[in-house]
Design a binder for these strands. Structure first.
Lengths: 199, 199
DNA sequence: GTCTATAACGCGATAGAC
DNA sequence: GTCTATCGCGTTATAGAC
């Protein structure tokens, strides 16, 4: 019975975090009140503090667990023995998959990371950012060296282009809509790799 | 003297709006207090209300004047008799020029339009958005019809790709940095038109 | 685990003196 | 055009009953 209680407590926690994540993503962190979260959960604001220290610790838990998951996926691509172009394709697809499956978390990270990152508590956001940049620069360098990518690319600018392009899609992509995340990834990779001009 | 007073009043207004715009862009509208703005201007918060009705009317004035300027530029491109590809290139360059010259305004629009647009007062933001989409869809349709662009493009998705790609650069572009806005536009157009893959 | 009640504080905005 | 002083409200968070 104590095991069940522990499990239900964890489930409730996750449920509350999921509700909070949706609100943070839609209205912004600062713009979402603890009363908003409590209302959406069908409880009163004071009751939230039985589960969490503060509103800040809620967004902290949301972001850090998402980041851990995302970077495990990056690591798997990096460690694989695919060729350079395939790795790039996989890394792009991985992003759209994250947008599909964790869109609230992606949106919160996109919208709030810069501001939250100024606080010491959220310093890991900037660290993960640097880590992600390192992954992409490696992939792009390998791509140019192997001849898969054009030699005249500005690698830093190309990295920013890809990073911005894939993640900003979280603003309009909706799971269950007309386009699957794999279809969007296909189109984006086509444009990214071969351009929109007539060959 | 009354003319000079009027002019100075206008200048002071513009100066205060410029200070507010920087703060809104950096910290977000909701996250910026009237005391922040007053502090940065070297006055007390109450004094701001001699110039403006409310914090909301400040961001309103910032966004509406920027939008008017931007869409005048779009109109000029549309009305020109350049060919389809040139018009697309000009529209892209125009965006990077706006990021260079009005980055705070662009950032505020990117970050806050969705949220502010829900209020009736800011309904024009959604209207301008629809207008901008119409411009781009026209340009892309013309591009495909004239053979300048690939025929297999998903026009709607391509529009979103371009829109997101050009505007999101406001997150990292800094005027006076290593890259001029024209150099960034050159690189982005190269990738957009011809892709990153080795030909 | 949730509710009642409230403390402590920061916020946008106002009124009137200078 | 700015300052002093303050109001009224919404917000995060706490303490203790149930």
């Amino acid at each position: 019975m104590s095991a069940q209680t522990r499990t239900e407590g964890t489930d409730r926690r996750r449920e509350l975090l999921s509700i909070a994540a949706e609100l943070f993503a839609d209205k912004g962190f600062k713009n979402t009140t603890v009363r908003d979260i409590a209302d959406a959960a069908g409880i009163l604001s004071g009751s939230l503090y039985h589960h969490f220290d503060s509103k800040e610790s809620m967004v902290d838990e949301i972001l850090s667990s998402f980041q851990a998951e995302l970077f495990a996926a990056y690591d798997e691509v990096l460690r694989s023995d695919d060729d350079a172009r395939t790795k790039i394709e996989r890394a792009v697809r991985l992003s759209f998959e994250a947008i599909d499956r964790r869109r609230h978390e992606v949106a919160i990270f996109q919208n709030e990371a810069d501001f939250l990152g100024q606080q010491e508590r959220f310093a890991y956001l900037a660290e993960r950012n640097a880590e992600s940049r390192a992954v992409w620069i490696t992939l792009l360098d390998d791509g140019v060296r192997s001849g898969a990518l054009r030699a005249d690319l500005d690698i830093e600018l190309t990295y920013r282009f890809i990073r911005d392009t894939v993640w900003v899609a979280v603003r309009w992509y909706r799971p269950g809509g007309k386009l699957s995340h794999t279809a969007v990834a296909d189109q984006y990779l086509t444009i990214l790799l071969d351009g929109i001009a007539h060959a």
